[in-house]
Design a protein around this nucleic acid. Structure first.
Length: 840
RNA sequence: GCCGGAGUGGCGAAAUGGCAGACGCAGCGCACUCAAAAUGCGCCGGGUAACACCAUGGGGGUUCGAAUCCCCCCUCCGGCACCA
């Protein structure tokens, strides 16, 4: 940290190079280091749970400790800090905490590449980043910070896992996952390159069925979907979540197979079942093996093998250029309403992960089924006829028809209008036991196991006698061993760590082996905000009383990139915590605001490896943290982000210098001036500025808020050498300006507040109150238009009547020129703003 | 393909039915200075001698009046993508 100077005045004079007067100049580094030290010494930002004021929980997404902060981190954290400071000045007891999302792959990669232990790498990064956050001037209570790779934290991941296991919300199941035969490990989807190549070794990879751990998030699908309505979140985030959950209403129908098995399908169009002319199974469907005839076996096996090798992206592509593929199994099913024998095919356009992994194909009314039927010359039967358009003919149709119409060729339900009559068709099917209503979700259960080292160990052991046994709560945490051997084998070091692996069965005491999978790091971030409310609790993940006092979070800020996964998982965990009785609310974040991404100057994503990251440190050294904070707010709308540009920051420094100058001069001035007109005008401006700054902050329009500060400052600068600068109204104006700037520029505001002779700390003052009477203008500029074009501007009393405005407007020479003697047809009047005379 | 968001001076932008370009950056001129920096004053979309006029991605429409509302199209960014 920078040395603390005893006297800012003395230090300031060193840098003086002769301004227009003999006052000192603003020196950012001196001011900032002075107040940083003072605030830390006084614990100004310590949050007291017992504080009786109303609470405000302002949360910002915690960072991954990747090494150093770049301006994007500042953008994400210093701007919400401005709002948190506003709330503090408004009288709230504000919790604005900070922590580190400290487990994850980059630490492990650093270990493999550079031989540094992930724990060392992570804690060094965290220490450096804490120092950088201190520079920013954010009001963080560091005594509450949370580091997720600490056993004191991750033991509660394990505790929550056990609770979920008890309730059937955590389970183990076979999953189809990518497997690299060379590295002998499972890969995440993102680690499989195009062409099914392993990202690390280049080997050809394929899917394999392996036991994995899942969280049953689908249990809450309906609530997760439904609750989105009430949340004050950006609409696009809510839409993304709804699409991700993907609710579909329809029915489950059973088709019998010749093998004696029942083949269940989910369909959103049970009304079209009379038009089902074949069935399609996903290649991984469990009945494929059984239904395949000897004659077709070779072809089916070859197809299944080929499907496994495709990436999900290739497989799910709707690219029209990619023809439908598939193979006939040789087996047949019976259509439950027509009793017809229909062929069963397998095709990769049917996904095992949705519905039942099998469909009834209705080629006349589903475009995918239609394409498949045409490719393999399968029968098409029309069961919906549109009422207006030409009659559909199976032989000549060029595409599936899924518009409205009436059912035909559908026996007992012929003539039913669709889609309006679909429910009655489902009733018909239910009454006869041919199917039931069902709702399906696109949302899948959350696969949480990772074959990685740097994460939370999953707290179960495997015993030959007892099978899978949960680690008892009183034996938590299961510590991640630090003596791990990092070899670039692609295998988790846990699989070869004997000390970790060998244990005894908690149930029978026999030798047993530990689970070596660790948890997805999204688990860590799914409940961390609760931990901030009681970061040192050693009895539970968090103290229920503290969580009840602070939660739910009033305002959550973060990047749009977390619109789906993190926010959905966090909502899921909140519901789980509620259901196990830790809290009584179901939604964690009442209000969400997203910042845009700061790109490099070239408009590309800031990347450490490409060297396009912009470091805040040099900018702080050159211009000060306050100027950088303002600059980030002023770049443009906060939710939009955009390319970084360091040119404008000098303007922010100029603004601060000007305010500094005005405040220092004001502090030295006597109160002996008087100028009633000028004072009234000044107070109008002061109160209009309070209003603009306040509403802009509440609307998260930080750029226009800064513009309002500029306009106010510019006006004060113009008047500072006039008599009004020695009046009480001037004092009010300058003190108000300092208060309005306190959230944005916490350091210089504190300095100026002190120089104005006001009591420490500016950050504990009340936010200025806007007085509408003082802000009201006496005169306004009335724009006068003729036929919608501006022809004159008149200064008129603010309270002018429409009648009088009309007289004045018509009397204007400029207006007369364009009216040109014609009789006005209409007169449109917007009070206090505009008059429009219409002539023809 | 579907669903969002955006397109305005040299640049970042403001204005969400009522003066297009607030505010800032850059630039230009002037003052101060031996000079430069800093600071201050002025100019700063196109067009004209000055007006008129033209101008918010393109085209149409609604309206007394449109950057803003409606229809069609183009471009860029984000999300989803055979979900039965």
């Amino acid at each position: 940290m920078t040395d603390i100077k005893d006297s800012v005045i003395e230090a300031g004079r060193e840098g003086e190079s002769g301004g227009p007067d003999h006052l000192e100049r603003y020196n950012a580094s001196v001011v900032e280091s002075k107040w940083r030290a003072r605030w830390e010494a006084d614990d100004l930002y310590r949050v007291d749970d017992a504080d009786p004021r109303p609470k405000w929980y302002s949360l910002t997404m915690y960072p991954y400790p990747s090494g150093t902060l770049h301006v994007g981190h500042w953008y994400a954290f210093s701007v919400p800090d401005v709002y948190a400071r506003l709330q503090r000045m408004r009288g709230f007891n504000v919790l604005f905490p900070m922590g580190f999302d400290a487990f994850g792959l980059p630490a492990e990669n650093a270990a493999i590449r550079h031989g540094i232990h992930p724990a060392t790498w992570t804690s060094e990064n965290i220490e450096g980043m804490r120092q950088q956050y201190r520079q920013m001037g954010a009001m963080i209570d560091w005594s509450r910070d949370v580091v997720t790779c600490a056993p004191e934290y991750y033991r509660w991941n394990q505790w929550l896992f056990l609770k979920m296991l008890e309730r059937g919300l955590a389970y183990r199941a076979n999953g189809s996952v990518w497997w690299c035969p060379n590295d002998q490990t499972v890969l995440a989807n993102e680690q499989v390159l195009e062409g099914n190549i392993c990202e690390r070794c280049g080997a050809s990879v394929s899917k394999r069925d392996l036991e994995q751990w899942y969280f049953r998030i689908t249990h809450y699908a309906e609530e997760l979907l439904h609750n989105t309505e009430a949340l004050d979140w950006p609409e696009r985030v809510k839409i993304m979540q709804r699409n991700w959950i993907g609710r579909s209403e329809g029915a489950r129908l059973s088709f019998s197979l010749e093998t004696g098995d029942l083949l269940e399908v989910f369909t959103t169009r049970p009304d079209t079942v009379w038009g089902a002319t074949f069935m399609v199974l996903a290649p991984e469907h469990p009945l494929v093996e059984k239904i395949t005839s000897d004659q077709q076996r070779t072809a089916v096996q070859a197809y299944v093998e080929q499907a496994r090798r495709q990436t999900d992206i290739e497989r799910m592509s709707t690219d029209v250029s990619r023809p439908k593929s598939g193979v006939f199994t040789g087996g047949y099913a019976v259509n439950p309403v027509t009793d017809e024998r229909i062929p069963v095919w397998i095709a990769d356009y049917v996904l095992m992960g949705y519905g039942t992994g099998a469909i009834m194909a209705v080629p006349a009314h589903d475009e995918r089924d239609f394409a498949f039927a045409r490719a393999f010359d399968l029968p098409v039967r029309v069961v919906i006829q549109p009422e207006q358009a030409a009659t559909l003919e199976p032989g000549t149709m060029e595409q599936a028809y899924h518009g409205p119409g009436r059912l035909v060729n559908s026996g007992p339900v012929d003539g039913t209008p669709v889609p309006s009559g679909i429910p009655s068709v489902i009733d018909w099917l239910e009454e006869r036991g041919r199917g039931q209503r069902e709702v399906n979700y696109r949302l899948r259960d959350w696969l949480i196991s990772r074959q990685r080292y740097w994460g939370t160990p999953i707290p179960v052991v495997y015993c030959d006698a007892c099978g899978m046994v949960p680690v008892p709560e009183d034996q938590l945490p299961v510590i991640l061993p630090l003596d791990a051997a990092f070899e670039p084998t692609g295998q988790s070091p846990l699989t070869t760590n004997e000390g970790f692996l060998r244990t005894t069965c908690p149930s029978c005491g026999a030798a047993a082996k530990r689970e070596t999978d660790t948890m997805d790091t999204f688990v860590d971030s799914s409940w961390y905000w609760f931990r901030y409310t009681s970061p040192h609790d050693d009895r539970l993940p968090f103290d229920p009383a503290a969580a009840a006092a602070w939660c739910p979070v009033d305002l959550y800020c973060g990047g749009i990139e977390h619109a789906i996964l993190h926010l959905l998982y966090a909502r899921f965990f909140t519901k789980v915590c509620r259901d196990i009785g830790l809290i009584d609310h179901g939604e964690p974040f009442l209000r969400l605001r997203n910042q845009g991404m700061i790109l490099s100057e070239e408009g590309t994503k800031m990347s450490k490896s490409r060297g396009t990251q912009v470091a805040p440190d040099d900018l702080v050294a050159a211009h000060g943290a306050d100027a950088l904070r303002l600059h980030l707010m002023y770049l443009g709308p906060w939710d939009q982000g955009g390319p970084w540009n360091s040119r404008g920051i000098v303007g922010m420094e100029r603004l601060i210098r000007t305010v500094f100058q005005i405040a220092v001069e004001t502090a030295g001035n006597g109160l002996d001036g008087a100028d009633p007109d000028a004072e009234a005008a000044l107070r109008r401006l002061t109160h209009r500025t309070i209003e603009r700054v306040t509403t802009d902050l509440d609307d998260f329009q930080f750029n226009t808020m800064v513009a309002a500060l500029y306009e106010f400052t510019n006006e004060l600068r113009r008047q500072k050498d006039t008599p009004v600068a020695r009046t009480r109204s001037w004092r009010e104006a300058v003190e108000t300006l300092v208060l309005l700037m306190a959230p944005s520029t916490p350091y210089v505001a504190e300095e100026l507040w002190e120089r104005l002779g006001k009591p420490y700390s500016v950050h504990s003052q009340s936010w200025p109150v806007f007085d509408p009477d003082l802000a009201r203008e006496q005169f306004v500029e009335l724009v006068v238009q003729v036929n919608g074009k501006v022809r004159d501007k008149l200064t008129v009393p603010a309270a002018i009547s429409e009648e009088r405005a009309r007289e004045l407007a018509l009397a204007s020479d400029r207006v007369q020129e364009f009216v040109n003697g014609k009789e006005p047809l209409r007169f449109i009047y917007v009070p206090g703003r505009l008059a429009n005379i219409v002539v023809r």
